[in-house]
């Protein structure tokens, strides 16, 4: 690692202030950032730690029936605290990485990083969540802009994520055996006004909504409804799976997710 200073603000306001420094970068759980720093692939001069900001932690229900999760809430906290309100989401959190990673990694960090194989982006996009930052609210549909790219501006921090709660949801994940990230994973959420299907791991464009499947499922919510569909797009091809295989897995994972809740 290159050396850097560490700031540990205790409020969002102080964090935003600290982020105004030159070459400042936020660090939340650090489960992706620290390995990146070890490989010297990033060279911040200041790391602004978000882990000491209590107002960014915790899970609660808002008056409008959305589940609100502080950006600094760890995966293990979400797994435990969201289970009663939004079991589909809790199940996503409970299967990210491994237990030690879940005790540090946060939802805000994951969404800000937008790894093309991360779990949370699928849950956020599949739920139609709203990403709240220190300065604005961004709909998930407008937030994910491609691999490692989001609508966040320089210095903007994910402070909270608001999830509408579907009637039913399921996350079906097929792991890449080395990294244990999804090779392909699909989050299916059934709302009263339609179905959302979000796919991670598969595309060079990062997380995406599989609209053909959504339409088919909104008309007929059954595994059979997606049986004949084939996901299109710029699929990732690497040593763990060809593009064709990933496209196939998108269909299988979607079908299984639907079967789990239909």
């Amino acid at each position: 690692m290159y050396n850097f200073d560490v700031e540990r603000p205790t409020s969002i306001a102080d964090a935003v202030q600290a982020m105004s420094k030159e070459e400042a970068q936020p660090i939340s759980g650090g489960q992706t950032l620290i390995p990146t720093l070890k490989a010297r692939l990033a060279a911040p001069s200041v790391l602004v730690s978000l882990t000491g900001i209590e107002e960014m932690k915790g899970v609660c229900m808002s008056d409008d029936g959305r589940l609100c999760i502080g950006g600094g809430t760890t995966h293990s906290a979400v797994a435990a605290e969201a289970a009663a309100h939004y079991p589909g989401l809790a199940s996503v959190a409970a299967r990210i990485g491994d237990p030690a990673v879940r005790n540090r990694g946060t939802i805000g960090g994951s969404l800000a990083n937008n790894d093309p194989s991360a779990c949370y982006p699928a849950a956020a996009l599949g739920s139609g969540a709203t990403i709240v930052t220190n300065s604005r609210e961004i709909a998930a549909d407008d937030y994910f802009l491609g691999m490692f790219t989001t609508a966040l501006e320089e210095g903007e921090i994910v402070t909270e994520v608001k999830f509408p709660i579907p009637q039913a949801s399921h996350y079906e994940k097929f792991i890449q055996p080395a990294s244990r990230f999804p090779l392909v994973a699909v989050f299916v959420a059934k709302f009263s006004d339609g179905v959302r299907v979000a796919v991670t791991g598969a595309s060079n464009d990062g997380v995406f909504r599989w609209t053909e499947a959504e339409e088919a499922l909104s008309a007929n919510f059954s595994a059979d409804a997606v049986a004949g569909l084939k996901a299109e797009g710029d699929m990732i091809s690497d040593l763990h799976g060809t593009a064709e295989y990933r496209a196939h897995l998108v269909g299988v994972m979607t079908k299984r997710a639907v079967a789990a809740i239909a």
């Binding site: 560490v6 540990r8 660090i27 650090g30 489960q31 620290i34 390995p35 070890k38 490989a39 790391l47 730690s49 882990t51 293990s76 491994d98 237990p99 030690a100 990673v101 005790n103 540090r104 990294s179 244990r180």
Partner: peptide, 26 residues
Amino acid sequence: DTSQCGACVVHVNGQAVKACTMLAIE
């Protein structure tokens, strides 16, 4: 160095964490 092997697992405030993926300052 990719936070996977877990040989460094310790408990911080009672929770298992990977000590190679946490800054000492934290």
